[in-house]
Design a protein around this nucleic acid. Structure first.
Length: 223
DNA sequence: CCCTGATTCGC
DNA sequence: GCGAATCAGG
């Protein structure tokens, strides 16, 4: 399989829509999860919360601890210069650092006392003694909750997809009511019977062609 | 174990 | 450019 424009576009949309590399991979077919990730990187569309990202390069890490270096490292590195550290002491903060998610960082500058940890939903756990803490940070961790409204309660979200339910997309990623068909699949296919009918159509002889079916994910609105 | 994305490196 | 192998956190 090669990366045609269509496949790249689908990859891009799904990636930006929050689909995982695995989901994208088997949606595209013929490629591995790794291929998807590799391609996404080459396309420059990284930037998605990775479970394995420190995202933290403190001041001089100094000695990266020799305890770990054992197998890699060393070949063509002539003179490994000390990590230049954050080379932006003078760099002025460009306006708002965190566009959307930045909310309540204790506006009044209240010295938050002994906060032990942050629980689910952003609630602060406190010791028994300090009860008067201001409960500042509102819960929202996702800007667009998976099921924000009652209307969505019965729609199938991306997170609920599995091999047994129809993954035909309804609407477009990013729209508030975007969801998946969710009906039981036609066994052996990724879609239900109805959507298999849309997805797989026999070629008719020339001159008898029907208009092409709308493509999942790329095409005009399907409903 | 499973999952995730990131990175490396031979092709 | 591609993607398997590998890494590393959850």
């Amino acid at each position: 399989m090669s990366w045609t424009d269509e496949r790249i576009e689908k990859l891009t949309k799904m990636w930006e829509g929050g689909a995982t590399a695995s989901q994208i991979a088997d949606e595209l077919g013929g490629v591995s999860r790794n291929a998807v990730i590799g391609k996404a990187h080459r396309l420059g569309l990284k930037a998605r919360p990775s479970p394995v990202k420190p995202n933290d390069k403190d001041s001089a890490p100094a000695a990266p601890s020799a305890a770990k270096v054992a197998k890699t490292e060393a070949p063509p590195r002539a003179a490994p210069p000390p990590r230049p550290a954050p080379a932006a002491p003078a760099a002025p903060r460009p306006a708002a650092a965190a566009p959307a998610a930045a909310a309540p960082t204790t506006p009044s500058g209240t010295p938050q006392p002994r906060i032990v940890s942050v629980g689910p939903g952003g609630f602060l756990r406190q010791g028994p003694g300090d009860q008067q803490a201001p409960i500042p940070p509102a819960p929202p961790r996702r800007l667009v909750p998976a099921k924000p409204s009652p209307e969505m309660a019965e729609k199938t979200s991306l997170l609920e997809l599995n091999d047994r339910i129809c993954r035909w997309p309804m609407g477009h990623p990013g729209e508030p009511d975007f969801h998946f068909c969710g009906v039981a699949v036609n066994p052996g296919f990724p879609y239900c019977v109805e959507h298999c009918g849309r997805a797989y159509q026999a070629q008719l002889p020339r001159g008898h062609r029907r208009p092409p079916p709308p493509l999942p994910f790329g095409g005009p609105r399907v409903r």
